[in-house]
């Protein structure tokens, strides 16, 4: 995911703050629609589509990530049709209940919001997002915590994978993990983690660490960055106020 951020499109070079703010505005606008919104969400797809296309990101990869991610929203949504059975819309002979509409609405919200969040990282990289947070005056200890956490995430995930693999090679029935084994595995992982923390601390001290993390930030904001935020925000508000698909459809029906 992070490696996508190594790209070199104009979007990658954009001030991460601009992308962060626009993404947040996008998400808030999307979730501000009522629960039976379906059609009005369609224009919003232009934002992720634009980011993927202009940023030269692998669309399939992003899509896969979105679909794989947390079935939670879908699980929650799936019984809206079950509870809410009032007919709301008719398409030809088919009666569509309010539940189905709100279910589709949840799915669309889900796709839009998750894609937007993932694209933010894919276009900026986690470190740049953190840099943006610093510039936006998010408290330093929290940003430093994010950076350290992210740095050692991979190291520890790999370590826990190794331990789990080692356990599996010596376990001859599938998937079973006794409580004792579980606690021991987690406990050892924790011990190693505490040791590692001490070693890192030493490494930091040997290079003059005095309690403050200094990072030389080089992000600059120009006219392009400002206009990115402004143009998209206006567009989102426009999409929020006017239901483009319906207006467009009515216009076409009138013409023909």
């Amino acid at each position: 995911m992070d490696s996508l951020a190594g790209g070199n499109s104009p979007l990658h070079r954009l001030d991460p703050r601009a992308k962060l703010i626009t993404t947040l505005f996008f998400i808030v606008t999307v979730v501000s629609f009522g629960k039976y919104t379906v059609l009005a969400f369609i224009p919003f797809f232009i934002y992720p589509v634009y980011l993927i296309s202009a940023g030269g990101l692998p669309a399939k990869f992003i899509l896969k990530k979105v679909l794989l991610v947390s079935p939670f929203a879908i699980l929650l949504g799936i019984f809206n049709p079950v509870i809410d059975r009032e007919t709301m819309v008719h398409i030809g002979e088919i009666c569509v209940s309010g539940g189905w509409i709100s279910f589709v609405s949840i799915i669309l919200r889900f796709i839009l919001t998750v894609t937007a969040a993932l694209l933010l990282v894919a276009l900026s990289g986690f470190n740049a997002v953190c840099e943006a947070l610093t510039k936006l005056r998010v408290p330093r200890p929290f940003v430093v915590q994010l950076l350290f956490f992210y740095r050692y995430l991979f190291v520890l995930a790999e370590e826990s994978n190794r331990m789990e693999r080692a356990r599996k090679t010596r376990t001859f029935h599938r998937g079973a993990m006794g409580f004792r084994a579980f606690v021991s595995l987690i406990g050892h992982l924790l011990l190693r983690t505490l040791d590692r923390s001490e070693r890192i601390y030493r490494a930091m001290c040997s290079r003059g660490f005095d309690g403050h993390i200094r990072v030389s930030t080089a992000i600059k904001s120009g006219i392009i960055d400002h206009s990115f935020v402004v143009v998209w925000s206006i567009l989102f508000i426009f999409f929020r106020v006017y239901n483009i698909p319906v207006e467009l459809g009515e216009f076409i029906m009138e013409v023909f």
């Binding site: 956490f149 050692y152 520890l156 995930a157 924790l190 983690t193 001490e198 601390y201 660490f209």
Partner: peptide, 19 residues
């Protein structure tokens, strides 16, 4: 000072343990 790296790796630990 020690808490700076400690918090970071413990976060990573929780993440790894959650897997």
């Amino acid at each position: 000072d020690r808490k700076v790296p400690l918090m970071g790796v413990l976060g990573a630990f929780i993440f790894a343990a959650q897997m």
